[in-house]
């Protein structure tokens, strides 16, 4: 059983999935934030792999990527952060999220092998639809990594079937048409979409984009197996002094977990 399966199997409440960008604003601060997440109540940690042109992200996560790159973040460093996290925590799943070009530059096979050996459990590559991900699929499978697919409000039934083919771990439902950190999702509008997805798969469905507050988490948690919070945490990192970032984020995560 994978860490992701174990996590969803053991939880009595919806999973809290937290997102931060690796190396934002620098490696040490980012590592401290990452290491503090599980203790504060994060069930799964998503780690953003910085990219110069994050076209699916809103201003908050764009800025995080640029801060990290300015502090000389790169793929090697991101994987070393995962390794360091894993040396102290063997249970919380780590999902690497990002864009394809840095993965391609690293080498797809090498990336999958190194990510798995560092202790990652799943991959979300935002701009790599199923039509183009054969090589990554193969390498991920060989290394025991889940490919986590995004399902969106524009996904129809036929498209959903092609997305489910090769999907594992969990599904990430993008609650709005838009970029990360945009308007809040409306649970009443989401519920039928999630129900429709559930008809076709036994995979857990986590909902992300636009979930910012404990109140949002409570509302979305009622209809999903997990909620993803990203921009709201990244904003806290942006606003905090470096030596206070981990504590500030932990406090916020605790409140979010308490609301689920």
């Amino acid at each position: 059983m994978t860490r992701i399966e174990k996590t969803f199997g053991a939880l009595k409440r919806p999973a809290l999935v937290t997102f931060i960008t690796a190396g934002d604003p620098d490696r040490d601060t980012s590592q401290a934030v990452l290491d503090a997440l599980p203790g504060a109540g994060a069930d799964i940690v998503e780690i953003g792999m910085p990219f110069s042109d994050p076209m699916a992200d809103g201003p908050v996560i764009q800025a995080a990527s640029l801060r990290a790159l300015k502090a000389r973040a790169n793929m090697k460093q991101t994987l070393s952060m995962v390794r360091q996290f894993r040396s102290k925590n063997d249970t919380t799943p780590v999902v690497l999220m990002g864009y394809f070009n840095p993965v391609l530059a690293y080498g797809v096979q090498q990336f999958a092998a190194d990510a798995a050996s560092a202790g990652a459990d799943g991959l979300i590559i935002v701009d790599l639809p199923p039509e183009e991900d054969a090589e990554l699929q193969k390498s991920a499978k060989e290394n025991g990594l889940d490919i986590i697919r995004l399902v969106t409000p524009t996904t129809d039934e036929a498209r959903l079937k092609s997305l489910l083919n090769g999907a594992s771990g969990f599904l990430y439902y993008v609650s709005i048409t838009g970029v990360t950190g945009a308007a809040s999702a409306d649970p009443a509008r989401l519920a039928p979409h999630i129900a429709a997805i559930k008809k076709h798969t036994a995979l857990p469905v986590a909902v992300g984009f636009g979930i910012k507050t404990p109140e949002d988490a409570t509302r979305i948690g009622k209809i999903a197996d997990g909620v993803v919070v990203g921009s709201a945490l990244v904003q806290t990192i942006e606003k905090s002094k470096k030596n206070e970032a981990a504590q500030a984020v932990a406090k916020q995560v605790k409140a979010l977990a308490g609301a689920l």
């Binding site: 699916a56 394809f100 639809p129 183009e132 697919r149 969106t152 524009t154 996904t155 997305l163 993008v174």
Partner: peptide, 8 residues
């Protein structure tokens, strides 16, 4: 190579 929202 685009975000899934745009694929359809």
């Amino acid at each position: 190579y685009v975000a899934e929202t745009l694929m359809p």
